[in-house]
Amino acid sequence: MQIHDNPALKAEARNLNFYYGEAKALKNINMPIYDKKVTALIGPSGCGKSTYLRSFNRMHDLYPGNRYEGEIRFFPDNTNLLSPEVDPIEVRMRVGMVFQKPNPFPKSIYENVAYGLRVRGENNKRVLDDKVEHALKGGAIWDEVKDRLQDLASNLSGGQQQRLCIARALATDPELLLFDEPTSALDPIATAAIEELVHELKKRVTILIVTHNMQQAARVSDYTAYMFLGEMIEFGKTDEIFIKPQDKRTEDYITGRMG
């Protein structure tokens, strides 16, 4: 798994194990996340890719009985995101997330995007207006909503809602953005829009994306990791993984013989 001429590291999982109560869901995962690149996590249902993704913003801390072992090092400051001394709220301020199903708050479009800023204590209307516009542009939805920022977000279409959720995550300038199967609830046109957006976003933010759609992984990612039964089977440049996978199990999955 040694890869040469690599860009800078944004994060790195080191000997990461994760337990839901007694059940071990992640087994000794080691993996780099490169700065300003898109890394895709693929694998059959239940392989732990979402569990792994949700470790990066300590989402598991919301529920009792979950336990991490090992580290996720976050650069440039070399913080261990999983350390008990690190506040999960601080982690989530640096690591944004977009969910499987669009989950806008039942508030106005404006308030959805402004929320992350309000949480950080920003109440200056001019600053908020500015950042909301910037984030909506970043989410490639500004032109569609600029005349109705006070409308309810739930009146948007599914694809628009998801781009709004991306804008919501972008508003606070995260260093790493997590996507948990962001297009699984969307139609092909909305999916294409999100994929294009992901491509655009990697200029400014590191992206980790879980997808069950291998074409999507091939289209949007620079690096791909194949997971199976809680293990990291193979990690590499997306071209290499899809053209000549090293592991038989990866090859079976990619060629559709399994999963």
Binding site: N57, L62, E90, F99, K101, N103, F105, A169
Partner: peptide
């Protein structure tokens, strides 16, 4: 739960 998670995910207490 996804509403709660959505809020916590941007760093809310």
């Amino acid at each position: 739960a996804m509403i709660r998670e959505g809020s916590m995910a941007v760093g809310a207490t």
